[in-house]
């Protein structure tokens, strides 16, 4: 087995271990019901994290994720009040997300500025736009929301796959296809592995960078749509600091923050680990959300150190 799969294996191992720990502590934990709920409750984070995976694979970072989720949410809600069909709004918002991401990617490559700073400005801008749209929490009342909430596919056992989870899995399939079966995906890995080499090997770095952040924008906007439909409301503060969870999910999913190594599928498990932790803590009752943050921090630390030593000991950066 190639060493580069080691982080992914570690991710799945951690996921299974947490799941078994939960099973040994609580009677009803090891069930498709819990699994289905975790998938549905964390669908928007995982969707956003899938987009972030592309960005991080290329050696970049996208801080505008949380604000995008909030902005899409308030737009969905306000346009709903104006009588738009949620699906029409969703289509418009997703197009907006793609364009916004592409713009960020263009600025990053053209001005040669760290992605961190550009997407930070992106974060401010979108959050500000949220407040321009509305300052209140606005409900989404369209019938489609009820349809969305009730649609489900039964799983073996008592569990069900809710619409959010279905959308998430479809988004994941699309991402796996893009990342692993297109030239674009191949280029993403190359830029993350070594941007200068990639350029010398003939990869169009600007076009690819724009594409990467456009994909990031697409997935954050999609996450915003799912979040809005899931909570059936839009709130201008929604999604604050969600970019951190998304980045954490990507890292826990075995993608190196330095870029170039990782798999999109890992992000699903990374997001599920975060979901499992909160579920476990909620099951426990006496623990609170402090432990969610601390345990994600500790796991993050463990994975970052693991990656650090993988890179240096297995010489993934080459011998020349």
């Amino acid at each position: 087995m190639s060493k580069k799969y080691l982080p992914l294996v570690a991710t799945i191992a951690v996921f299974l271990a947490l799941f078994l720990v939960g099973g040994s502590m609580y009677r009803n934990f090891l069930s498709t019901l819990v699994l289905g709920n975790i998938l549905a409750d964390n669908a928007f984070i995982i969707i956003a994290a899938i987009g972030a995976t592309f960005v991080i694979l290329s050696g970049g970072i996208d801080l505008s994720i949380g604000s995008m989720i909030g902005f899409v949410g308030v737009c969905m809600a306000v346009l709903d009040r104006m009588g738009w069909h949620p699906l029409a709004t969703a289509a418009v918002m997703i197009c907006f997300g793609i364009l916004y991401g592409a713009l960020q990617g263009f600025i990053i490559d053209y001005c040669d500025i760290q992605p961190f700073i550009v997407t930070l400005a992106g974060l401010f801008l979108l959050r500000g736009l949220c407040f321009m749209v509305t300052l209140d929490s606005v409900p989404i009342r369209h019938d489609f929301v009820d349809l969305y909430a009730s649609a489900k596919i039964p799983l073996p056992g008592r569990g069900v796959l809710r619409s959010s989870a279905i959308v998430m899995l479809a988004a994941l399939a699309l991402a796996i296809f893009i990342a692993h079966f297109t030239r674009f995906g191949n280029n993403v890995y190359a830029i993350g592995g070594d941007k200068e080499s990639a350029r010398l090997m003939g990869v169009n770095v600007r076009r690819t960078t724009i594409g990467i952040y456009a994909i990031g924008g697409f997935y954050s906007a999609l996450a915003g749509v799912v979040y809005a439909l899931y909570t059936s409301s839009g709130y201008p503060l929604a999604g604050s600091t969600l970019e951190l969870s998304a980045i954490a999910a990507v890292v826990l999913g075995g993608t190196l923050l330095t870029g170039g190594v990782g798999m999109v599928a890992g992000t699903l498990f990374g997001g599920m680990i975060l979901g499992l932790i909160s579920t476990l803590i909620i099951f426990h009752g006496s623990l609170n959300s402090a432990w969610i943050m601390i345990s994600s921090g500790v796991l993050l630390f463990a994975f970052i150190v693991l990656h650090r030593f993988l890179v240096s000991s297995f010489d993934l950066r080459g011998t020349s």
Binding site: K4, T182, F184, N187, Y189, A190, M201, G211, G318
Partner: peptide
Amino acid sequence: NLIPAMSVTKNLTLGPSRDALGVI
């Protein structure tokens, strides 16, 4: 100038290409 973490096949597939979205 290769990408060390990528497989040989993937490295050899890299390059200027008109259809970046092309399926591999």
